[in-house]
């Protein structure tokens, strides 16, 4: 849980966890901070990257209509399917986000082009260390151009890329923070024994990722996800406004997807005010 305006990490939790007073009773697996060291395909939560990029480049508007091919899109010799039972025909860009159409996101990616897509993936902080002052094993992966022919249809839906939960949370934070990506912040200041402040660690801007206008449009689209028209209705809050995105991705072992092993993500921000929080929830299944 991150405060988008400052990058402050308000809360971070892992399960399974361990008792630091009894390290011997825990396994190395349980002692790992998965939020900063484990990577997974972000699935549809990653659609915020391609859609906000298209909005920022003014190549798409939320009201633009996209033919979602009834959920079956042939491209580069492969067929891309929509994940849900509903087979969508014509959707607006906003509805592509709300309904989480893979085909719609792929077509936005094709319109954006591989170079711009890669540029925005990197702008959002994927493929680079977050800068958190904790030891982390992975900087997260991103395959540079030239991409495989069908990658332009897969990356927009969060496949063929990998990210840590913290990276995904910071990306969502950038949207909630008017388009500005912040460095994660763990410590505000240090005091000596007398309580005198001896060091301060102010918020650090990583970079502007998209314009304020594009970020506001993305927030508007993400609000529809958490509505009766959206795929994330189960995340709707009773007493607060929220914007978010859910995602699902299969686990990859040895370069191949393993059936039954999946990651489920939800990423969002609430309440929608300047004092909002961004939130990332990441669940791995061995079912």
């Amino acid at each position: 849980m991150v405060r988008p305006a400052t990058g402050e990490i308000v809360a971070m939790a892992n399960l399974p966890t361990f008792d630091p007073n009894n390290l011997g009773a825990s396994t190395p697996d349980a002692r790992r901070n998965r939020i900063i060291s484990d990577i997974a395909e972000p699935g549809s939560t990653f659609k915020i990257v391609v859609v906000s990029a298209a909005l920022n480049e003014n190549i798409s508007k939320l009201t633009d209509l996209i033919d979602c091919e009834h959920g079956n899109f042939q491209y580069a010799g492969y067929t891309l399917h929509d994940a849900h039972e509903d087979k969508y025909n014509i959707l607006s860009v906003e509805e592509v986000v709300a309904k989480s159409s893979n085909v719609g996101a792929a077509k936005i990616g094709i319109k954006l082009g591989p170079e711009k897509l890669e540029e925005y993936v990197r702008r959002f902080g994927f493929g680079e260390p977050t800068g958190i002052i904790l030891p982390a094993k992975f900087a997260a992966l991103f395959v540079p151009c030239p991409l495989e022919q069908d990658s332009i249809t897969r990356i927009p839906m969060g496949h063929e890329v990998a990210a840590t939960p913290l990276q995904m949370c910071l990306a969502m934070s950038a949207i909630a923070n008017r388009g500005v990506l912040m460095r994660p912040r763990l410590v505000d200041h240090l005091e000596d024994a007398e309580g005198k402040v001896i060091a301060r660690y102010p918020p650090q801007v990583a970079r502007r990722v998209v314009s304020e206008t594009a970020a506001q449009q993305m927030v508007a689209a993400l609000k529809t996800v958490v509505s009766t028209n959206g795929s994330g209705l189960n995340a709707q809050l009773d007493f607060y406004t929220a914007a978010g995105k859910t995602g699902t991705a299969q686990k990859s072992v040895g370069g191949k997807y393993v059936s039954g092993n999946s990651f489920r993500h939800s990423s969002g921000s609430f309440p929608l005010t300047i004092r909002s929080f961004a939130f990332q929830w990441h669940l791995m299944s061995r079912a």
């Binding site: 995340a235 009773d238 007493f239 489920r264 939800s266 929080f277 939130f279 929830w281 669940l283």
Partner: peptide, 20 residues
């Protein structure tokens, strides 16, 4: 039943509301 919208979204709701 394995989708994030089904499994992860309700957890977002519970934790977000308790955090608030």
């Amino acid at each position: 039943g394995h989708f994030g919208a089904t499994v992860a979204a309700p957890v977002f709701k519970r934790i977000a509301e308790r955090s608030a």
